[in-house]
């Protein structure tokens, strides 16, 4: 579905990520791990077209998109939910969601989609008439995620979706991500919370100083002592395979050890 090879991108012509290759298959959750400043957000921006690719290629569903505008990429079904909420602060919640469906795509109508979002996050329904800038930080994060889903994307790039959320909500969001995969969406998930993202991800890449240093099935990585040391705290917990349902249940209680 998404096939990146040899990608370099950065700011003002100076590359921050170098010669980076990764793939995301249909219906897969791919976690992107890395310390602060590793280049995760930069990669996300390069994929969505906010930053130009300095070298390399990005193929989405077979088509080369590394020169396409952000708008064209959204139309193709590649949607990026950026780090730090970035809601339209002066517009109402409902208007924010409408703008999420600015690129009209076949499928259910805007209002039907909005209902789905409201069902998922009831607080958004309550506040649908108020200005997004006046929502709390966590509510804004929910709005940002919902807005990203409004255009019915095929691949969702989530940059730190759990940032600023209460622990219960973090579990909620991870459960939702797992659920979206069930609906056939592909997801590239960049997160600080390595433990949880590895728990729901199929595969993962580890980014260091703009280069991929480790990759593989999430289940393997979670047991790897290196990951354990760097991102999970010392001592790798042993994880066994579990179904999505179990996972959701466990995640709801996850804040206890997060």
């Amino acid at each position: 579905m998404l096939d990146v090879s040899g990608l370099s991108a950065g700011y003002d012509g100076r590359a921050v990520i170098h010669d980076l290759s990764l793939t995301v298959e249909q219906g897969e959750i791919v976690a992107l791990l890395g310390a602060n400043g590793a280049g995760k957000s930069t990669l996300a921006c390069a994929l969505s077209g906010l930053l130009p690719a300095l070298a390399g290629s990005i193929r989405f569903q077979g088509a080369a998109i590394e020169r396409a505008s952000p708008a064209a990429r959204v139309s193709a079904g590649l949607v990026h939910v950026p780090e730090g909420r970035q809601v339209f602060a002066g517009l109402t919640v409902a208007q924010n969601l409408e703008l999420g469906a600015y690129v009209e795509r076949p499928g259910s109508t805007t209002s039907a989609r909005m209902e789905t979002m409201f069902d998922r996050f009831p607080v958004l329904r309550q506040r649908s008439g108020s200005v997004a800038g006046n929502l709390s930080g966590g509510q804004q994060q929910m709005l940002a995620i919902s807005r990203g889903l409004m255009s019915g994307p095929k691949l969702l790039i989530l940059d730190e979706p759990s940032l600023g959320l209460a622990p219960t909500l973090v579990a909620e969001v991870f459960a939702m991500i797992a659920e979206l995969r069930g609906q056939g969406l592909s997801i590239l998930l960049s997160e600080q919370n390595a433990r949880m993202s590895l728990a729901i991800a199929d595969r993962a890449y580890v980014l260091e100083n703009g280069r991929i240093t480790l990759s593989g099935p999430a289940a393997d990585l979670i047991r790897s002592s290196e990951i354990a040391k760097r991102y999970l705290g010392l001592g790798a917990p042993d994880r066994t395979e579990e179904s999505d349902c179990d996972l959701v249940a466990r995640l709801r209680a996850a804040f206890a050890w997060s």
């Binding site: 708008a71 970035q86 703008l99 990203g148």
Partner: peptide
């Protein structure tokens, strides 16, 4: 509406597919 989105947050607006 797209105009307004551009003023509010150009980066997010382009992520919505607005040129």
């Amino acid at each position: 509406r797209a105009f307004q989105a551009c003023a509010e947050n150009p980066m997010a607006a382009s992520l919505m597919g607005i040129g």
